[in-house]
Design a binder for these strands. Structure first.
Lengths: 209, 209
DNA sequence: TCATATATTCAACAACCATTGAATATTGAT
DNA sequence: ATCAATATTCAATGGTTGTTGAATATATGA
């Protein structure tokens, strides 16, 4: 994308190089994993020298944290917006809206569920950080909502926290495996139909029994 | 484990060194991922020199394939045994038995769901191989059973293949995240209680609506 | 007891990695 | 026009990786 040839300082601080690096890094990390991705690959994708990454982000780990923070912020924002939009309605509706917002977010950024999913699987400080930054707020958000919905209907579904965790990672794994398994498994092709199936099976079936 | 000091040939072909290497490799690969694991780590765990791994398994990739093949064989065997045990009963019972056998297998080998799960997430030839060796037979097995159960009850659940895929990866991710999230999320502690919750939510709730 | 086969170790290899310090070109202010 | 800042590149670094070829010790069969 960037076509600069000579070296030196091209623009002030917030040039688009940082954004280009972030974009490339998210793609690579999501597709190959943290360890399997070299900074040189990312630098090549972004059309930039390797050293620039360490200079800007303070190293590979710093780049990782930056990306995860960004994704986490975007997700939290989407959830809060959904909550604001359905403020006056009942608890069940609010839960449904949040679930819809979550699924929409995942479908729009299919790299995120990959990160999310891979890191319940790996033992490392990096994974722990992602867990606290991304997963935990998500759990708390949905547990509260599901509890409220259950109260509203005077039902006490067994294993509520279990159901919530299951909903989150089911959604993530479904979106993640979509590209991977492809048409191999299911006939659900386009995004809208896909989201509808997810909500029917996961939200109404397993989350709100 | 092995305490040999001098070098040379200690026993005939099938000593326990190969097994020790396989064991260590499964642990490491499951805990850290393929790329993040060095052959030297595995060799140290197994009490063996690095070079021996390449000599016996033909390299890192060969070791990986060997492990996955083993896991796949064990899983298929468990499923077929469950099918044999419930031969005379109805289709619904057979589905329940298979689901139980699957969950039991996963709980008994918590490394496997980690491999399974991580590899819908990573693009590589290795992942593709695992997909075909482990996941695909699993899908086919359960799709056939779920179809039969649906026919038996004269119900046609929407998105059947979708539900099956969801069941498989939900189970895998639940077992995988159990060690990771720990008591953070749910109050379900011991294995029996855990399996019961899984079957209630996943099998009866989402797989056989 | 000797010879052969081979399981294992040792040592060295080239390739790659992330990071760092110095060099350089560009910008923005004076 | 000049100067200071700094975004970027270049070149080199030390460390780690998987693999290979040679050396060695043991077990087995004659």
């Amino acid at each position: 994308m960037t076509e600069r040839r000579g070296r030196g300082r091209p623009r002030e601080k917030d040039s688009d190089t940082s954004a280009a690096i972030s974009r490339a890094a998210l793609q690579r990390f999501a597709a190959q994993g943290f360890e399997a991705t070299s900074l040189r690959e990312i630098a090549d994708d972004a059309g930039v020298d390797v050293a620039l990454i360490s200079y800007r982000f303070g190293g590979k780990q710093g780049l990782w944290k930056d990306i995860v923070s960004q994704a986490g912020a975007a997700l939290r924002e989407a959830l809060e917006r959904a909550l604001g939009d359905s403020e006056a309605t009942g608890a069940q509706k609010r839960l449904e809206h949040s679930a819809h917002a979550f699924l929409t977010y995942l479908l729009g950024r299919p790299e995120v569920p990959r990160l999310l999913l891979r890191d319940i699987t790996i033992d490392s400080d990096r994974s722990k950080w992602l867990l606290e930054t991304l997963s935990l707020p998500l759990h708390q958000h949905f547990i509260a909502l599901a509890q409220a919905a259950a109260d509203e209907r005077d039902k006490a579904p067994a294993h509520l926290e279990f159901r919530v965790a299951n909903f989150i990672y089911s959604a993530a794994s479904t979106v993640a495996r979509r590209e991977r398994l492809g048409k191999l498994v299911s006939g659900v092709e386009d995004n809208a139909q896909f989201a509808a199936a997810l909500e029917e099976v996961l939200v109404k079936g397993a989350l709100m029994p």
